[in-house]
Design a protein around this nucleic acid. Sequence first.
DNA 1: GGTTAGGGTTTG
Length: 774
Amino acid sequence: MPVHTVKNASDLDTRVLPSLQRILLPNLNLMSDAVHSSVKGKVVQKGPVVSCRQGDYLLKAVIQEEDLQQSSVSQQASINVFFFGTMAKDFSLSVSQGDIVLLAGFIISKSPTEQTDRLHPCHLEMSGPDACVYVCTSAVSPSRELSAVSSEPRYTYVPLNELKPRRIVNVYGVVIFFKQPFPTKGTDYCSTLKITDQSNAKVGCTIFSERLEDHPKIFTIGDIIRLHRVKAQVFNESMTLLTSLGWSAVTFDGAIGSPVEPRASSRTFHFGEADKRTVETLRQWAASQPLLTSEPTVPLSSVQPRMYFDLSCQLLAKACIDSRCMLLKVWDGTKCGYPLLDVAVATDTWEGQSTTSKDREDMTANILVYDNHVEVAKTLKPGTFLRLYNLHAVPQRDSEQPPDVPSRLSFHLHGGTSFGRGLRVLPSHSPDLQPLKRLLESHADRAVEKEVNDDTLLEVWYTPPESVGAAITEEFYTVQTCRHTLQQVSLAHVKRSTPPVVCHVRAQVRSYKPRKLYQCLKLFCPQCKSIEEVPDDGTIAQVFQEALRNSLPCSEHWAVTSSMDAPGAGRVITMHVASDMVLDNTHSQLLFLESLTLDEMCVISGMHKNIVPVQSENRRMKLLDFSAPFLFCGDKRYYGCKRCSRSTFVEPVVSGGEMWDEHDVAKALGVQLMQYTLLIQFELQDGTSTLDALLWEDAEQFFHVSSAETSANQDLQDKVQLIMDRLHPPGSITAKRPWLELCLSAYSVKDNGRNRVCYQITNTETRGNFFTAH
DNA sequence: GGTTAGGGTTTG
């Protein structure tokens, strides 16, 4: 290995590479003889191994000259060193921050970052066969042990007037300006926003992310945002914040008294009491700042010609005009004070309800959405609640119209993102949508009272946003996939039958539970047959926190141990790799990580195939409590059965070069792997009776998803939700629910010594042409 | 470790 360890620091001066000339770092320059020289210094910064574009690996470290008089310490005493390929991995595993290293076989280059990092004008590159490192591992210092056990506070937040250039920080702020994400010329979407806090400093933030759903969910000025791991930078003489590696954003409603519910895109983020207090304090402060109170959205009834305004509304229908323009038909339950322009569109180009009752006609607004906004508008489903930002009320003067007749108003969402122009979907539970929803509901009630012969309004209101279009244009049904040749029977007949028996029935879903789809996902132990809930992130984070409290780095003879700094936490994460695997590709290694938080685990697991969180007990490695996953594989998490697994293990039998899956890891660690499973209880009805039936063993077939994949994939969760909403549209009346052809298995189970009959939906799958659209 | 963009007196 090109990284060698020596026992004594003095060996670096005397025994190692005696033929080479030591150069003090301040004396090093581009003309120095790199071939016959060595440098020595303390590792003051050590970055992670990162993969670069060509499939190579890179690690950056900073080493500092130690052998200097105090007076001569200068910026030239610290130098950037880049390690490439296996050298990077070896360095990462063998060298810790604080160690003294001797480097040779380097290339000296001009440092492109001299101006920004104020370090040595040169940097060193360590690659190729001649590069080598000797390291004297420093003893674990008391301060390092202390930092490993201290866990609070988890994050520190920097006031916006105390930002220093180039520092990676966590901040809280109140949003005073924001734009919806727009595509850049690079690979990402960009959101720009401006925030402020009690210090009154105003700081622009630029968020880059390839995924639209990762961008901060800001609905209005006055929302509160928490940013983690953003980099401070000066631009145009002002401080700005820029996303950096592992950044995250969580936003909150800014109104005093509204629930402090974090809006996050990532499923894993830390949110505790301290965050709640910070949000509440910021809300109080913002309420006292007249400039910060958010401009309320303007109802249609208050719109004046030529004004720009934000509108909250429900989408009724949409139609494509051309590639650069879409028409959205919306309402907000109020009546505009001006006559509205009706845009003529062929009936068959509408999606959703284009024809409406006279009463509603007066309340619907046609909105022309241009250019870049078409992309978002295309994805909208009738029924969705929307907010349109910087909408323009344009009076359209008809040339033949007499001057005393008021012009008809049309609404335009112009192209571009200036002034925050854009549109976004609002979740229907948003606090500031509730007045709008109550208003729409009252119209729906009135329509019922009057028995208006037009149920389109009810249709839109009572059907969930996603399914309005579908309910009209798409078919939904189930088919039996078994080969039973059975006469269809009634539910009453099924209940009279003696189990075990299989029946075919035709029934509707009267209700189902759990209503929160994520609660349908369970963990099943094939060994002891127990079913457990999937722990939520709060529970898991707590297990990590517990382990953090008790842990001192463990040491195992079979593992190579190294450490890295937890960014901004003043704590060291310890990493163990089985010796046999050290040379494997970093991404496929089985890693054991100690002293880290769930957040950190989520960041790191994105880059590795298999990571096992561990803690130590008497310096021996031990798994965490089984309420937390014992294994992280990218987005996926695997759990061990509490009853059937051991939390201690001897040396895991690993051999290099293999690709490990969750079964291999579980076996090597003595863990009984829990399987993901979907479990839903339906109440079926068919006019003769009602009957509770489980959907469990054949649930994957029913939904066309894998339970394990669904656990880590929002799209699949949405798909399950979508299907449930078809089976049982929320708020729907019986007549509107589909009739399903089902295969039912009736069987007996022992329950407290008594036989009980259970029913399961088996051999049945859902069909509907929305699958192809999805 | 970091390319994109870095709000702005709008308009079909």
